[in-house]
Amino acid sequence: MAQRVAVVDPGSGNLASVVRAFEKAAEDNDIAAEVKVVTAASDLRLADRIVLPGQGAFAACRRGLDALPGVVEALEERVRGMGVPFLGICVGMQLMGTKGLEHGETPGLGWIPGVVAPMDPRGPDGTPLPLPQMGWNALSFEENFHPVLDGVKPGDQVYFVHSFAFEADDPEDVIATTDYGGPVTAIIARGNLAGLQFHVEKSGPVGLLMLANFLRWEP
């Protein structure tokens, strides 16, 4: 029986590329998966895996999530209460934190303690680097540390677009970083939770490998 993958739509844009990437990752790896964009709490209660993408501003994505009746409560019930594997992508990953500081202070879901703060990247001579951090950048991590990174190699590149970064309270929740004027959180994970700061659906074969790993992951 195909596992049911719910891609939550907080109203932040077209999620077709995320769905297509998951479908390709499943097909290429012979994983039976039904991937569906959802906005209803009832769909989350039937899901075997839950994905929260997001793009744009933290506050707008949080408002979009709150505007879906019962969805935040269903996420708490399924993800926190029942341990359903969860993947946050880009702003969806940031929403896993305690709060975001974009356009004022906005509470996150509070699942992994940390603050999403504005980046201030500097070059070796102290000059500011352009924001957003946009484009391909290498991942730095300890190999074989987490199932989502199975088969991915340190130095593999993924596609970033962001001006705010996750600052975790506990460094152990950060399982991969990238370098942009210093280390920047790229992947967070704790228990059945994983979050990717980059656009995994735009990250080519490396991204597809991570999505397949998520579909296989049994936390």
Rank of each mutant, 00 (worst) to 15 (best):
M1A: 15
G204P: 01
G151E: 14
Y180A: 08
I188W: 00
N213D: 00
P124T: 10
V184I: 14
G123R: 07
L44Y: 06
M1G: 15
R63N: 12
D9H: 01
K202Q: 03
R78F: 01
L87F: 08
E167S: 02
A40W: 10
G70R: 08
I188V: 15
L46K: 15
K99F: 07
G191Y: 02
G182A: 07
V8A: 14
E142G: 04
Q3Y: 03
V7H: 03
I31R: 04
V91G: 00
V79P: 01
M1Q: 11
D9Y: 01
L15N: 05
I187K: 02
P130C: 10
I89E: 00
T178A: 12
T185N: 02
G81Q: 15
L52R: 04
H162I: 11
V84K: 09
M82V: 13
A138V: 06
P53N: 07
A189M: 01
L44T: 09
L52D: 11
I188Y: 00
E23L: 08
G151A: 10
F141Y: 11
G182R: 09
F58A: 10
A57W: 03
D66R: 05
F86K: 02
V19T: 09
G83Y: 14
G88I: 06
G135K: 10
A26D: 03
N137F: 03
N137K: 02
L193M: 13
G204T: 05
A60Y: 09
G151R: 14
V158W: 05
H103W: 10
P121G: 07
V8H: 12
P85N: 06
V206W: 05
V200F: 01
G64S: 13
G64I: 10
G11Q: 09
R45D: 10
Q133D: 14
H146A: 12
D125Q: 09
G11E: 10
Q3K: 01
A138H: 04
G11Y: 09
W111V: 06
T106G: 06
E23P: 03
A168G: 00
L15R: 02
A57N: 03
A165C: 08
G92C: 07
L68C: 14
T177L: 03
A47C: 15
D120Y: 11
P171R: 00
E201L: 13
A60L: 12
V115F: 00
G110F: 08
M96A: 05
D156V: 10
P124H: 00
G70M: 06
R80S: 05
M210C: 11
R216I: 15
E34F: 13
D30S: 13
L95V: 07
G181C: 02
L131G: 01
L68E: 08
G100P: 04
R45W: 04
Q157K: 15
L109V: 12
A138L: 09
L196R: 01
D30W: 13
A21I: 14
R45S: 10
A117G: 02
S42H: 13
D120M: 12
V115T: 11
L196Y: 04
A21D: 15
E34P: 03
L101S: 04
S203N: 06
V161D: 12
E77G: 11
L101M: 10
D120C: 07
V72H: 08
A60C: 11
E167N: 05
E142C: 06
T178G: 05
W111R: 06
A47F: 15
V206M: 05
N144D: 15
M210E: 08
L129M: 15
P205S: 12
V148P: 00
M93P: 02
G13S: 01
E23N: 02
H199I: 14
W217A: 11
